[in-house]
């Protein structure tokens, strides 16, 4: 059991390693075979985003970070992906409270929008950068939500797969057609035998569904889905967490949605180290975004 850990550096979980959830499908979490993979409906969309940033300079010890975030929704017809919606934003981010008026005016003269980052209690090179990244990730989430909202509005019958959770889309019309695929498992919602059942799912099975509560109290119905067989070395290998906004039908369609996602195992997104849980269309969106963005200096 310890072999896998010995091979790679153990990662520090994020700020929320545990969160509450309630099982809504039976009493305990169990493995549910979902059946043969089935290709999702024609016209299905996929949303993902990218972010890039660089420290452009400093005012004293205060870093000025330039960032670009972008997101796109690609729709699939006949196996080919085409861009249906796209959102790009480039900006500067600094802790405004630490700048003088002259410094601030100099920044505004650059001509890029400026997003303020958390100044913290006092300057710290690493914390300042971390604060900038927080801003950048929020802007990227907004970009993704914007692309998703435009896709769902323009295509009222189409399903949309998003990278990550869906609670941020609660205000978007048509968000009940969004399927979130979460690759990271930094937050654990289950414990004890439920957790063991979820993390040892056989390939092609999902866990019982549970409901978790997101920001602003938005509820999402979620389940784990084993895309590829796990190995002794890594329980998380091939394991994704799927979620939909809790609404009528979300639970009933869990098997169908799972079968659609199982069908996405091929082609393999083999250029990405997370290939065993990264769906190829999402990889394609990311590739598209990077190609679109071109060189960025």
């Amino acid at each position: 059991m310890a072999r896998g850990l010995a091979r790679e550096a153990a990662r520090q979980p994020g700020g929320r390693p545990f969160a509450e959830a309630r099982v809504v499908e039976g009493r305990d979490v169990r493995a549910i075979p979902v059946g043969e993979p089935v290709t999702g409906p024609e016209g299905m969309g996929f949303v993902d985003g990218i972010q890039r940033f660089a420290v452009e300079g400093h005012f004293g010890v205060t870093p000025v970070v330039r960032a670009q975030v972008a997101a796109a929704a690609l729709e699939r017809h006949g196996g080919a992906l085409r861009c249906a919606a796209r959102s790009v934003e480039e900006f500067l981010t600094v802790p405004r409270d630490r700048l003088t008026t002259d410094q601030w005016e100099a920044l505004t003269d650059v001509g890029l929008p400026i997003q303020e980052s958390d100044p913290g209690p006092r300057p710290h090179p690493l914390l300042d950068r971390w604060a900038a990244v927080q801003v950048i990730e929020q802007r990227r989430d907004r970009c993704e939500a914007d692309a998703a909202a435009r896709f769902l509005a323009a295509r009222p019958d189409a399903w949309l797969v998003v990278d990550g959770g869906v609670t941020g889309l609660a205000a978007v019309r048509g968000a009940d057609r969004a399927i979130g695929v979460v690759k990271s498992h930094e937050t654990q919602f289950l414990e004890a035998t439920d957790l063991e059942a979820a993390l040892t799912l056989p390939a092609g099975s999902r866990s019982s569904a549970f409901v978790r509560r997101g920001a602003g109290g938005v509820e999402a119905t979620s389940w784990y889905l084993r895309l590829w067989p796990w190995s002794e070395e890594d329980l998380l290998h091939g394991l994704a967490r799927v979620e939909r906004l809790t609404a009528r039908g979300a639970l009933d369609s869990a098997d169908d949605v799972s079968r659609w996602l199982l069908a996405e195992r091929s082609p393999v997104a083999d250029r990405d180290p997370r290939w065993e849980r990264l769906l190829y269309p999402m990889h394609h969106v990311e590739m598209y975004m990077r190609a679109e963005a071109g060189g960025w200096h």
Binding site: R76, G79, L81, A263, E264, V268, P281, H284
Partner: peptide
């Protein structure tokens, strides 16, 4: 990786997305 994606079956259904 193509073999893995098709789970070793060259006759498997075409993937939903073209590379």
């Amino acid at each position: 990786h193509e073999v893995i994606g098709a789970e070793g079956d060259p006759g498997a259904a075409a993937p939903p997305t073209r590379r």
